[in-house]
Every structure is written in structure tokens, then in C-alpha cells.
């Protein structure tokens, strides 16, 4: 059977004109000695003949006028879609930045801005101290609540994160597919 399956693949290649000379010879030699494959080959050739004999369908209308008539609308929709995706992305990033800056301000980052060291050095010092403060607080909190709670909360957080990520991907996919996809569901 496996050997015969190999020959149906060769039949397919020969019909498409994609078999090399060796493959054609191998198929022909096999067909000489195998009645089953010869019968299969006849059916495959007949199928090929019928597919080739079924003509292409001509376009019923000139699509150029129809397409041109919709171009302005689609270009405008496309621009709107890009703005929407950019807006959603910036909103998401903005929320993260606001959360970080709030955390830094809550930890007194602004109090460490020493003008003598320059604004970049002061900002870096403030951010580092905020980071180490956050790590200290998180580790103290984790020790306090214990391993089972950590496992449960981590699991729930992962599920929530996956859910949010999937929602985000769904929204972006819907928006990318254009306004039609948003209304056809």
C-alpha cells in the first residue's frame, strides 16, 4: 500500500508536468506490472482531462469603475483604522507610564531631584530608588502572605493577563480587518 501511495504521488507530478525523467520512467514501469495502478492512472487522467476541459469563468463586469468608486471611502476608513490602532496603543502605553510615574511620585522621586547632579542623573537615581523600594516592598509582602496564596494569586493573574492579551489581540485583529469585519460578526 505504501508503495502504491508513492505511485499516486508520481501520477500527480506527471499530470502537472513536474515529474523528472526518472520519475516518469519509474511510474511507467510500475504501471506495466500493476493492474490496480493502471486503473487508478486511467481515472486520474480522466479527472485531469475534465478539469482542463472546464473553462475559466470570464469576469461579468468591468470592476475598475466599481473599485475606483469605493477608493476614497476605503482610503478614509483605512486612515481612521490606523489612527484607532495608534490611539489604542498609545492609550495602553500611556496608562503604563502614568502608573510608573505615580509609583515614583508616591515614593518621593521628585524629592531626590538634585539640580547639581543634572536632571538625567537625578531622574536615574530617583527611578533606581523607586525600583529597589518596589522590590523590597514586594518581597516583604510575599513573605507575609505565604506560598499557597502566592501560587493562587499568580495563577489568577496569569489567567487575567492571558484573557486581556487575547482581548487586545481580538480588538486589533477586528480593527485590522477593517470596518466590514466589525459589523459582520
Amino acid at each position: 500500500m505504501i508503495q502504491h501511495a508513492e505511485y499516486t504521488m508520481l501520477m500527480s507530478l506527471v499530470l502537472d508536468g513536474e515529474a523528472d525523467a526518472d520519475e516518469e520512467v519509474r511510474l511507467r514501469e510500475h504501471l506495466r506490472g500493476c493492474d490496480d495502478c493502471r486503473q487508478t492512472w486511467q481515472r486520474w487522467r480522466e479527472l485531469d482531462r475534465r478539469l482542463l476541459a472546464t473553462p475559466a469563468i470570464p469576469a461579468p463586469v468591468d470592476f475598475s469603475a466599481l473599485v475606483l468608486a469605493q477608493l476614497d471611502t476605503r482610503v478614509a476608513q483605512e486612515r481612521q483604522r490606523r489612527w484607532l490602532i495608534a490611539g489604542l496603543t498609545f492609550a495602553w502605553l500611556g496608562a503604563v507610564v502614568v502608573a510608573l510615574v505615580s509609583l515614583a511620585l508616591a515614593n518621593g522621586w521628585h524629592l531626590q531631584l538634585a539640580p547639581a547632579q543634572g536632571p538625567l542623573a537625578a531622574a536615574w537615581a530617583g527611578l533606581s530608588s523607586t525600583g529597589s523600594w518596589a522590590l523590597r516592598e514586594i518581597s516583604a509582602f510575599l513573605v507575609e502572605i505565604g506560598a499557597p496564596t502566592i501560587a493562587a494569586v499568580t495563577g489568577a493573574a496569569l489567567v487575567l493577563a492571558c484573557g486581556l492579551a487575547m482581548m487586545w489581540l481580538w480588538v486589533v485583529a477586528r480593527v485590522s480587518a477593517g470596518p466590514r469585519a466589525l459589523v459582520t460578526e
Binding site: P58, A59, F63, S64, V67, L68
Partner: peptide, 17 residues
């Protein structure tokens, strides 16, 4: 757009098919 219309006319048959 006129050039694009010509491309549409050239390929509308295969795409529609």
C-alpha cells in the same frame, strides 16, 4: 488612479475566476 484602473482591468479576469 487611471493607472490602477488599468491594472484592475488587466487582472480582473484571473481574480474573479
Amino acid at each position: 488612479r487611471a493607472a490602477f484602473a488599468r491594472l484592475v482591468q488587466a487582472y480582473q479576469g484571473p481574480v474573479y475566476n
